[in-house]
Structures are given as structure tokens and as C-alpha cells.
Amino acid sequence: MESSDADLVTRVLHGEVNAYGALVSRYRDRYARYAVHMLGNREDAEEALQDAFTRAYRSLARCEEPERFGAWLFRILVNRCRTSGARRVRRGQTFVHDEGALMNASQEHPAEQTMWREEIERAVGELSPDQREAFLLKYVEDLGYDEMSEITGVGVSALKMRVMRACDRLRTLLREVHSA
């Protein structure tokens, strides 16, 4: 039977360091998706994710609800992505869509599919970081506004506004593509 998050956390805190590997495997891919979409390229995403996992290990004793380790780790990752995004802006880099992430999609109509994916990635990349974060948390990670508020420290009203604006912006950007 698969160990629960709480069991694994307890084992790690008692010095069974390899138990942490099970937590890494459990959350690696799911949270990689958020990081890739948030940061726009696999290299930055992996760096942010790795940093989130190592930070979580260093302060594991502060995880107040070990049965919700995943949610706690995700909060660390969201903060880490914010820092990484801010640093990228300071470096003057532009958002680059991720070819690697796109390769995992289905191959039904490869050319059209790839074009559509690229347009979506590009449109998501053109959102402001705040809007992108709110949109991904709401629609891709499927979180409620209360959970989003807990993770981001932003009020529910402000988050709703960001999501609404993100949706409007995405529709506008993709309508332009359709009509072009």
C-alpha cells in the first residue's frame, strides 16, 4: 500500500531521508506543469521546482499539516515562481514558450495541434505575472478562491478580478489569431 504524505513526512523527520524521494516522485510532474506554464520554459521551471523541494526538506518540521504536504509544497513553489519570474524580468528576458512541454501533447493533427499549443503558450505568456498566476491556479490547478487566497496572500476579490482580466485577455489574444 502506498504510504500517505503524513507517514512519509514523519519518517523523514525521524531521519529516514530516502522517504523524501517518494514525496518528490509523487509531486514532481504535477507541479512541474504549473512551473512550466508560469515561467514559460523548462529550464527555469525545473530550477524552481528543485529549489522548492529542497527548501521544503530544509523546513519540513514547519509543515504544520503533514497530511497536506502537497498543498504546503505548492505554496513554496508558487512563491519560488514569483521570485524567479521577477528575476527574469529584471534580467530583461522575454517569455519563451516551452517546446519540451508541448511535445507531450497528443499527435492527432500534429501541425494544427502544435500551432494551437504555441498560440496558447504565447497568449498565456503575454499575461501579466499576477494574471497568469491567478488563471493557472483557478483553471489549470482547479483551486477554489479561498485556497488561492491562502496560497498567494491576495484577497479573493482581487483574485477574481485577475482571473476575469486574464480570461478577457486570452480571448482577445486568441481571437486575434483566429481572425488573422
Binding site: D29, R30, A32, V124, Y139
Partner: peptide, 12 residues
């Protein structure tokens, strides 16, 4: 469609 696309798994 956007959400469906963005929810596709990303393998590390």
C-alpha cells in the same frame, strides 16, 4: 480548449 491544453501532463 485553453484549459484542456494547459492541463496536459508535463513529464520531468
Amino acid at each position: 480548449l485553453i484549459v484542456e491544453e494547459l492541463r496536459r501532463p508535463v513529464k520531468i
